[in-house]
């Protein structure tokens, strides 16, 4: 045995295990996506067991592509993921820079800031949609009512009354509605994942070279220039990490969408898969393959974009 083949041999179990780990689910999904496979069909009971004799070719894919929700689900996936990434990175950078300065109570503030990350997604969704965003009972409803009451009170004051009577009555927003349910999901997931971004950015900020800052101060750079030319490039890599990890996680959001509106006006590919999987496993698998393709496209696109703009 040459001295190369022994290490190879020792690696094989791990490699084989990994291959099985990844290949089996993927091949099963591929297989199901090319056959007719449903859970329940009284007229064609043979479709309820997976078999090559039910071969459908690209029929499932065609079916999914032509279903009315498919394009919407893709668009909506991108909207949700894009918005969450944008908000978490901006808030994450701002908060991390803010709490990087030392101040009294720093430890407690940091722990509190991280805590949303430990809330379970479903709990997070229930909490937000019922207790905060609810137009009647939630904080939102109470706040809007309070503002309306205040304006009503101001209407009767002598001088400014005329001005305030021009103001409309504010309407609370219903976040379970078709038009707004996606925004509810964006808000609650942003709240939950900003701490993750803060955590990563904060560790990175702590490794920032202080002498570079001092050199920049002597070179006449103000606070903004230091942030723009030193801190932001320094955060390039962590931002890329945060964006990549979150993109992978948020492409598969499910619990929040289910709890906020049961997919009403707000579907993504995983949710669509869930709907198909109620009966049509073939279509669900085809959607799954589309989801894999979408995730890859998003990942490549993000890598390119981040590589270009931030690493320079």
């Amino acid at each position: 045995m040459s001295n190369r083949s022994l290490p190879r041999l020792l690696q094989t179990p791990a490699v084989i295990l990994l291959l099985i780990w990844m290949l089996v689910p993927l091949s099963l999904t591929l297989y199901f996506s090319f056959i007719r496979y449903v859970l329940n069909n009284l007229r064609r009971p043979e479709w309820t067991t997976p078999s090559f004799s039910n071969w459908r070719g690209f029929g499932n894919y065609e079916f999914v592509l032509n279903s009315k929700d498919f394009l919407f689900a893709i668009q909506n996936s991108l909207l949700i993921v894009g918005s969450i990434l944008f908000c978490t990175v901006i808030f994450g950078v701002l908060i991390a820079v803010l709490i990087n300065k030392s101040f009294p109570g720093q430890g407690i503030v940091r722990v509190l800031l991280i805590s949303p990350f430990f809330v379970m997604p479903a709990v997070n969704a229930v909490l937000w949609i019922n207790m905060i965003l609810d137009p009647v009972l939630g904080l939102q409803g109470l706040a809007v009512n309070g503002i309306n009451d205040m304006i009503a009170g101001l209407r009767s004051t002598p001088v400014l009354g005329a001005f305030f009577s021009l103001w409309p009555e504010f309407e609370p927003i219903s976040f379970r509605a078709t038009q707004t349910s996606a925004y509810a999901v964006i808000i609650m997931v942003t709240w939950q994942w900003t701490p993750f971004a803060v955590l990563i950015f904060m560790t990175s900020l702590q490794s920032e070279d202080q002498q570079q800052k001092e050199a920049a101060i002597l070179d006449g750079a103000g606070a903004w220039s230091q942030f723009r030319f030193l801190t932001l490039p320094h955060l390039g890599r962590p931002i890329a990490i945060v964006v990549m990890i979150q993109a992978i996680f948020h492409l598969s959001l499910y619990a929040e969408i289910e709890i906020v509106s049961r997919g009403n006006g707000n579907k993504n590919l995983p949710y669509l898969i869930g709907e198909f999987a109620n009966n049509n496993i073939g279509a669900a698998s085809a959607t799954g393959i589309f989801a894999v393709i979408l995730a890859n496209i998003v990942a490549i696109f993000l890598l390119r974009m981040i590589g270009k703009t931030l690493m320079e």
């Binding site: 070279d209 002498q211 050199a215 030193l230 490039p233 390039g236 320079e312």
Partner: peptide, 10 residues
């Protein structure tokens, strides 16, 4: 500076 303090991204 002793550690040069150059801006690494530029």
């Amino acid at each position: 500076f002793q550690t040069y303090a150059l801006y690494p991204h530029m």
